[in-house]
């Protein structure tokens, strides 16, 4: 049995009259300490998937398991890095991490806690910005802070919800390397949502595409067997990398076309209306 498991999950929004089914019979299995990338088009329910796994949303049918246990409520064991950082803007870098650490490790002593927080600040290279407010940080720094906060909770599962999609290309590749470095130092189960095929290929052990919504499910899996560490500079000339990337892209494009062909196009007959043109002025009465 896999470590993190999505078991035949149905989920939808809205009342019965105009219900939108996001997932229908979606299943996914992630092994312990595996890095899985879920890739999908926007609107296919990627963020909903993270919310379901984190326990922020409850599936309508089916279950989410972690280590064999059913996920009933969100908690620090399922760390989420949100797409838009979700930092508390009135707390400093240190304060944001402190809030999480105090809550998750209430018995930690003061000095120990300070060192612990500093360790995570150093880990994401934010040393020197401890007392800055999130508003004074760049996008990349904010996402690092969000990552540090989540990691400081020592989650068993790390759920990354498009963590890099709001960043520019350079910061993005830098942060990809950093996430991989941290993950390799301290292996744990990671599920990352992304919309970038290259990112998925470079970072993940396995790529799982999400089919087009509504009623999405998880499609064919692509294992990534490229050896680690993966060097960005030479990877571009690696035939395996190129092939995998093309394969995933092609699969995704097919999904898109399939989705388009599935959408019904209905021709509605319009009534034959003639506009009333203003005629000559007529005196009435």
């Amino acid at each position: 049995m896999a470590y993190l498991e999505l078991d035949n999950v149905d989920f939808g929004f809205g009342p019965v009259s105009h219900r939108y089914e996001v997932f229908e019979r979606a299943s996914l299995a992630v092994e312990q300490n595996e890095f899985v990338a879920v890739i999908g088009f926007s609107g296919s329910g990627k963020s909903t998937l993270v919310s379901l796994l984190a326990g922020l949303l409850k599936p309508d049918r089916g279950q989410v398991h972690i280590n064999g246990k059913v996920v009933a409520a969100p908690g620090p064991d399922k760390g989420v890095v949100f797409q838009n950082y979700s930092l508390l803007p009135w707390l400093s870098v240190y304060g944001n991490i402190e809030l999480a650490v105090k809550q998750v490790f209430p018995s930690m002593k003061r000095g120990e806690r300070r060192d612990y927080i500093q360790h995570y600040i150093d880990m994401v290279s934010l040393r020197g910005s401890e007392w800055k407010l999130p508003g004074e940080l760049s996008g990349g720094m904010r996402q690092r802070l969000s990552l540090a906060r989540t990691l400081s909770m020592k989650p068993e599962v790390l759920l990354l919800d498009e963590p890099l999609s709001a960043l520019d290309a350079l910061t993005r590749s830098q942060l990809q390397d950093e996430i991989i470095r941290i993950w390799e130092e301290d292996r744990r189960t990671v599920l990352m949502i992304t919309n970038d095929v290259d990112e998925a290929v470079i970072m993940a052990d396995r790529i799982v595409p999400l089919t087009m919504g509504p009623a999405a499910h998880l499609g064919r899996e692509f294992p990534v067997t490229l050896p680690r560490p993966r060097d960005r500079a030479t990877l571009n000339f690696n035939p395996e990398f190129k092939e995998l990337r093309n394969e995933v892209t092609r699969y995704m494009m097919n999904l898109n076309e399939e989705a388009k062909s599935l959408t019904r196009s209905v021709t509605l007959p319009l009534p034959d209306l003639q506009p009333v043109l203003p005629g000559p002025r007529v005196r009435v009465g």
Partner: peptide, 21 residues
């Protein structure tokens, strides 16, 4: 959502998240 993930209780949620914001 952050408060939920951290499992903050009612009072911590009130004083650490809701009131400051």
């Amino acid at each position: 959502n952050v408060a939920r993930v951290l499992r903050l209780g009612f009072w911590s949620r009130l004083f650490k998240i809701v009131l400051p914001s």
